[in-house]
Design a protein around this nucleic acid. Sequence first.
DNA 1: GCGACAG
DNA 2: ATCTTGTCGC
Length: 246
Amino acid sequence: MAHYLQLHDWNVSPAEAVALQKQLRSQIRIGPIATPPKTIAGCDISFNKFEETVYAGIVVLNLETLETIEEAGVISTAPFPYIPGLLSFREIPSLLEAWSKLKTEPDVVMFDGHGTAHPRRIGIASHAGLFLNRPTFGCGKSVLVGKYEEPAPERGSWSPMLHYGDVVGAALRTKNKVNPVYVSPGHLIDLETAIALTLACDGGRRGVGPHGIAPRGVGYRIPEPTRRTHNLVNALRKGERPDLTT
DNA sequence: GCGACAG
DNA sequence: ATCTTGTCGC
């Protein structure tokens, strides 16, 4: 039900993919988010090593309560290999299939990867943002490009990621004394908002324990949208979610 | 030329 | 990404 723009063909060679990125990057807009988001979606794919079949999924949550509003999943095939810098060409096609199955239209989308923290400033979050035509940002578990100073050990502290003089993202601590995650704007959003949304997606922040006080052990390094979607696609891969294929 | 390299 | 048990530290 949810729709998106088919800006270009995905059946391209690595060289053509790079050319497309250079062409598309001028359309990316980084800036304050236009409308306060009420829902947020997480995206991810899973697959068996050496196999071309991919299990893609999207989980939409209420930003206020972090309750899961909707789930979508598809079993597809990735015609493109994993090449650092060209991740979007491998993952976006199947994610768009899952997106089209959504009844809900998420206000903002989080990706497991980067946005502007990319060698050509157009990581999967930025690329997908152009197709989805809505705010998107990346929250990765490791760095592709960018140097940064270790942020303070407390949750919430962050330091800018620099690449050729540009602040391309932030190393953000989502949990005390735990490795940071790497946040960067994708499209129609700015770094500060992307950081705030990432922190707002901490499962231990609210809704758990007496008076909403989170007990120890809840609240993970990986924000809820990505964490839940990761669990979803892994379950899909193991055949534990036949309901999603229906 | 050498090393790095999201998922 | 995926394959896996135990183990070090708060």
